[in-house]
């Protein structure tokens, strides 16, 4: 246990050196994995391949989906009908059995996603969630005081706009389709995708666009 320390802190980790003795849980992970490989329940290769899959998933994928929805109304309606098959049209594979529901922000409704029970998140299109999404304050508060939560992220939604919070489950995941900002009519799909951030697709912020000074 000597190597164990609490990871719910906010300082950076000391550099990991190759000669460092692995901690208790690190050893446990290796031991569990190797025992299961020895039992032929899966191959070591599958873990390596899945690490590559995880590394390939970033919010850039979700941003591509959002930008396409902003520029192609027929795609948008298919995406809102079935989020998973919409993403698959763009070549984004779902490596698990999860379904995806895409929630459209409008002038009348602002969507926010959370997983109160744990950390369910649209990983195939956004990658792994940030730590704050998995920690108690966000999970506990998003469902009962979403406006206060949004304000902590610097997001102020007018009082006449409904805030709708969707609580993810093991098999149903959500992705927010943010509103396309004003003044972006001249941007192409790639330029639009560059504006879309992870936090906007969680729903804690809106997509911003500042026209560059001429």
């Amino acid at each position: 246990m000597s190597d164990h320390h609490d990871h719910d802190h906010d300082h950076d980790h000391a550099p990991i050196t190759v000669d460092e003795l692995p901690g208790y849980f690190d050893l446990m992970e290796t031991a569990v994995r190797e025992l299961l490989v020895e039992r032929k329940l899966f191959k070591a290769e599958e873990i390596r391949r899945q690490i590559e899959v995880l590394d390939s998933r970033t919010p850039a994928l979700g941003a591509k989906v959002v930008a396409r929805a902003w520029t192609d109304p027929a795609f948008k309606s298919r995406l809102l009908e079935n989020g998973r098959s919409g993403c698959e049209e763009l070549g984004i594979t779902f490596y698990d059995d999860t379904q995806l529901i895409v929630l459209e922000n409008t002038g009348a409704v602002h969507n926010l996603i959370v997983c109160t029970l744990c950390s369910c998140y649209p990983r195939p299109v956004l990658g792994l969630p940030p730590d704050w999404y998995k920690l108690k304050p966000y999970r506990a508060r998003a469902v009962h005081e979403p406006r206060a939560v949004l304000e902590e992220f610097g997001t102020f939604i007018p009082g006449d706009v409904e805030i709708r919070v969707s609580d993810s489950t093991a098999i149903i995941r959500y992705l927010v389709l943010p509103m396309r900002p004003e003044g972006t009519e001249h941007l192409n799909e790639t330029q639009l995708a560059d504006l879309v951030t992870r936090d906007a697709m969680i729903g804690v912020i809106q997509v911003a666009y500042k026209r560059e000074a001429a």
């Binding site: 719910d8 802190h9 906010d10 959370v114 109160t116 029970l117 940030p130 730590d131 704050w132 920690l135 108690k136 304050p137 966000y138 999970r139 506990a140 508060r141 998003a142 469902v143 009962h144 939560v149 902590e152 992220f153 609580d167």
Partner: peptide, 13 residues
């Protein structure tokens, strides 16, 4: 824990 009292959201990653 949905709905529990909790502190400020620290934006840790």
């Amino acid at each position: 824990i949905g709905g529990d009292e909790a502190g400020k959201i620290e934006r840790v990653e």
